[in-house]
Write a protein that binds this DNA or RNA. Sequence first.
RNA 1: GGCGACGUAGCCAAGUGGUAAGGCAGGGCUCUGCAAAAGCCCCAUUCGGCAGUUCAAAUCUGCCCGUCGCCUCCA
Length: 490
Amino acid sequence: MPLKLYNTRTRKTELFTPIRDNDVRIYVCGLTPSAQAHLGHARSFLFFDLLRRYLAHCGYQVTYVQNVTDIDDRSIQRARETGGDWREIVHGYYRDFKAAMAQLGVQEPDFEPYATNYIPQIVEMIARLIESGHAYVSKDGVYYRVATFPTYGALSNRNIAELQSGARIEVDEFKDDPLDFALWKFAKPGEPQWEAPWGAGRPGWHIECSAMSRELLDAQGLGFDIHGGGADLIFPHHENEIAQSEPLMQHPPMANVWMHGGLLLFDNRKMSKSLGNFEPLPDLLARHDAQAIRLLFLQTGYRKVMNFTEESMMAATGTLQTIRKGYRALHQRAEGRSAPTLHATEQLTTAIRNALDDDMNTAVSLSKLLATASNTDALVAAHGGDAQAALGEFHAMLDLLGLTPHDSWLIVPPAMLPDDFVQRLTAVLGHEHVPAGGAPEEALAAIIEARLAARARKDFSESDRLRNALTAVGIELKDSKEGTTWSVVV
RNA sequence: GGCGACGUAGCCAAGUGGUAAGGCAGGGCUCUGCAAAAGCCCCAUUCGGCAGUUCAAAUCUGCCCGUCGCCUCCA
């Protein structure tokens, strides 16, 4: 089953066909690090990370570009407010963002261009737009003349006349038309600036993406394969990118497939910098398992608006446990086996591929994975009893979905005993089994040993008394054939 | 006002004409002294409402109700 993707440009789900044989080129609008990144950003980049993984899995050679718009009005304003340096502000937020992405298992882009490193390309593109009559120099900057691009609005399904009558477009005395947008903004005193033929200043938002995608993915102007971003970028950002790029191309469209991720709501409202209703990503990642966050997003279609709640986060955490248990069970069965003969059946792989081929239906693909995780016997049986092969397939699919198994999945993490453990234990049991001044671990070991001795002589009332005592101080015991283990109850 | 998305069990969510995936939570059973773990099983005659098309509708059409997004910086 071939891959089909929904294309915002045509408003249809279409067969995906690369422009250049096996070579797939993707440009995703990255971050403008003028504030902390939030979960909405994570959702978007997590999705494009998955898309990239899947395209690679399908055998394509993928080039993935994700830009950094490191100069914008907001970061300048922030620098003015705090008295800091705009570069430091931007780089600080970006560093946090990168760390969060790494934690979420998002692969590094092949190119991560900073807008300020492409000023010459930006200036050149603006010059060509002026030459060709698509842009004009005004008093406070250079503007794009929207009226010169007849198909403006095609991506977002709007028409120019309608937009012009819209009451919400800011009227600017230096623009010939309210729809026109800035390509270059002349610097006011004290603002960061770069030299340009029309006057020193900085690039407007939008032009950096046109210039950098051209430079890195499409020097010939033949278009590239996929352009992605959040749904809130469709208008005006992507519309403007098209207007800037396509007049200078050999063969429009700028990008064959335009893909947009649904926005994430928080408390039923859009997360946004301006509304301020979001929890910074680093804070959220400190509270929740990064893989559970990835899993949470896999459960919902990428184009759907999704509402984040603490409850759904907890559910995803539970689901992740199911997956880890399944993996652990498979791993145990596979141990000691030899000669892994993969490709025995690959039923799971086929099911997951079919789901992803259908416009990246992660919810269905995940359900296939979960059916396996909670019934590992079936997967092993499908591999003719070869647990090693079953494990290999399961592992590969987890990796494809970005839920790469970690060694820690195989062990129950050693819990930390609370600092006041001995004290609390003494309060419950006295010094009966608790050596005074001993380490918490020793005290616990002593109790466990005493209980095992009681069990050995079938003194179950004593055994239960000790279990209950430990329960009272928050320790849960588990008896198994291998011995007694404990964990801290939260 | 224009454009668009969504409304499926307690919660999340898949399903776009053939009789409701999956997860979380909940319940039952088996097994272990108890407990936990594990395994097995149950959990929507019904898809916001009302009409209509059809042999057949959660899926198509119309109207209505509700929630949200874009149209302004935003993933």
